[in-house]
Design a protein around this nucleic acid. Structure first.
Length: 563
RNA sequence: CGGGGUGUAGCGCAGUCGGGUAGCGCGCAGCGUUUGGGACGCUGAGGUCGGAGGUUCAAGUCCUCUCACCCCGACCA
């Protein structure tokens, strides 16, 4: 490809819109253009990268035994209503109305469609296992798209679905996909960490995410320094420290005038926050819920939401709390009635806690569970923190940020039951097919690759996904020898199936070098009068500082070695 | 949805307080001189000042409404 003909211009200045590295570089390199919030055009360079990622993914899916198909973006809303997932997605679902007043959803994912499709085509256990996938555009009306291609509303995703007759089969399919995913990231030269994940509204047994560690990542990962434990903070557990407190003493009221927060109460009573119980109120699908948790620990809302099996969970407003007749700031699980009490198991890690007294400006000392109150549900609903103890080996946990570049789920039978997709087993009995699903966002993978591979000059593409392999850079093209050799080298390289971006522009060396660095093509071949004096060209790897002089006759061999 | 911010040429911005001929840098076009890490000179093109309504002799600037985009939070398979 000739630079002079390439659609898409590099730009010198950092766009005001972008404050994530990958977003800035993608725009500066002329690779993407924003059309609306979270909606982008891919210009030729970005499209080439995306296609390379796509072909790596396709190859690994096929190797794993997947069969590719294509399903519609436009899906009847009724299908979503049948599984109730229109509610789970809520406003995240793009819904439109056709001329006959039928409601259609733009597919945010394709579980419903494929389950129905498989239900029509699979009758027997002999048809299983089955791995089906597609690479398709998805639409989600995200509350807040951000960071360029990292979180968008329209995106290309590879989604594979597994269909098995039994749990053991699902486990095999799941394992097969983990391996396929690891191959994909390895081939993209992107180190991805497998972490335990929350499976969200869809439920199911296991779920894992593949994370690329990056400062700009939206997800927090809690990991053990010693063993292999790693989990999304939404899911992560930690062993809660014991706080002691001595033998249970009788409860005792203390006056705490004007003190509301845990910090205020704890410092006033001269006890650590870990020796207090905090009351947190939530509205779960419109129902007020009381949460009791140790004062130094925060509620993990994802865990709470899963526990309550609710669609909408948010902190209750002070008005809602007061309206329920509760003393805000001094609320207590003791003696409270007509409200569901959820307790984090941290409240059993000690004795003689300070808690509210359900009276304004009053707290209680020496509160003990279960002596003084009962919880309707006791569970782990705490946020794990760096510094906590690993639930698997007890060593210290640490925290990093990551970009989620893959998410896999053991779905189970929820969808095949709702949408009536049974198979007949060997005994002639009908059973629901057991499903799994496995997604990779291609655009996000592309962005993650940039987050992971760049310097202050620009992108440094890993060879397998680089838009071109070679940046052919003649200097002083008005020198007829340079022009002639450059054209010849270009033709020869293309003939040998090198992917070459030929900078045939009349630009100064500085401009060309800077564009070469910005675009991040792995190998740069410079031809100038200076190199031609020695009958050579200069080859430089994008990631390296030094260039090497290579005789013209050896260029192809040398490039081949470096790719 | 809550909080904060920004909309002026393809990009980055000034001008808005205090109303009076719409500017700068980059980029773009032409000519010339240059050129191994974003060269220089001259000439030139390019703007519904996000949109609508209002106040005024006069609005980029003041008022009302509205839209878009960005950041934080909520939210998010």
């Amino acid at each position: 490809m000739r630079m002079s003909r390439l659609f898409g211009k590099t730009q010198r200045e950092v766009p005001a819109e972008a404050d994530t590295v990958s977003h800035q570089l993608l725009i500066r390199a002329g690779m993407i253009h924003q059309e609306a919030t979270g909606v982008y055009s891919y210009l030729p360079l970005a499209w080439r990268v995306l296609r390379k990622i796509e072909s790596i993914i396709r190859d690994e899916m096929n190797k794993a035994g997947g069969q590719e198909l294509s399903m519609p973006v436009l899906q009847p809303l009724e299908l979503w209503q049948e599984t109730g997932r229109d509610q789970a997605f809520g406003k995240g679902l793009f819904v439109l109305t056709d001329r006959r007043d039928r409601k259609l959803a733009l597919g945010p994912t394709h579980e419903e469609i494929i389950t129905q499709l498989v239900g029509h085509n699979v009758q027997s256990y002999r048809d299983l296992p089955l791995l089906l996938y597609q690479i398709q555009t998805k639409f989600r009306d995200e509350p807040r798209p951000r960071a360029g291609l990292i979180r968008v509303r329209e995106f290309t995703m590879k989604d594979l679905y597994s269909f098995d007759a039994d749990e053991a089969g699902l486990d095999r399919s799941y394992q097969l996909m983990i391996e396929a995913y690891q191959n994909i990231y390895a081939r993209c030269e992107l180190p991805a960490l497998l972490v335990e994940a929350d499976s969200g509204a869809i439920g199911g047994k296991d779920s894992h995410e593949f994370m690329v560690i990056a400062e700009s990542g939206e997800d927090e990962i809690i990991g053990c320094d010693k063993c292999h434990y790693a989990a999304n903070v939404e899911k992560a557990q930690s062993t809660k420290s014991k706080v002691g407190g001595g033998d249970p003493l009788p409860p005792e009221e203390v006056s705490t005038p004007g003190l509301g927060t845990i910090e205020e109460v704890a410092s006033f009573l001269k006890v650590p926050a870990s020796q207090t119980l905090k009351a947190v109120f939530y509205m779960a699908d419109g129902e007020l819920v009381f949460v009791s948790i140790r004062g130094d620990i925060e509620v993990n809302e994802v865990k709470l939401k899963n526990l309550l099996r609710c669609v909408e969970l948010r902190l209750a407003s002070e008005e809602e709390v007061i309206k329920a007749g509760i003393a805000a700031g001094a609320a207590s699980p003791i003696g409270i009635k007509g409200i569901k009490i959820i307790a984090d198991d941290s409240i059993t890690t000690g004795t003689n806690f300070v808690a509210g007294a359900n009276k304004p400006d009053t707290h209680l000392r020496n509160v003990n569970y279960p002596r003084d109150f009962k919880a309707d549900i006791m569970a782990d609903i705490a946020n794990a923190h760096a510094g906590d103890s690993c639930p698997s080996c007890g060593a210290k946990l640490s925290s990093t940020h990551g970009i989620e570049v893959g998410h896999i789920f053991k779905l189970g039978t929820f969808l095949s039951e709702k949408l009536n997709a049974p198979y007949i087993d060997a005994k002639g009995e009908a059973r629901p097919i057991i499903m799994g699903c496995y997604g990779i966002g291609l655009g996000r993978l592309l962005a993650a690759a940039i987050e992971q591979n760049h310097d202050d000059k620009g992108i440094i593409w890993p060879v397998p996904i680089a838009p071109y392999q070679v940046y052919l850079c003649p200097l002083y093209r008005e020198n007829s020898k340079v022009a002639e050799v450059a054209e010849k080298v270009y033709a020869e390289l293309e003939a040998k199936e090198f992917e070459v971006l030929f900078d045939d522009r009349e630009e100064s060396p500085g401009v060309k070098f800077n564009d070469a660095d910005l675009l991040g093509i792995p190998l740069r071949v410079t031809i100038s009068p200076r190199t031609l004096e020695k009958n050579s060209v200069e080859i430089k790897q994008r990631a390296e500082k030094e260039a090497q002089l290579v005789p013209l006759a050896e260029v192809k061999t040398r490039l081949r070695e470096l790719l």
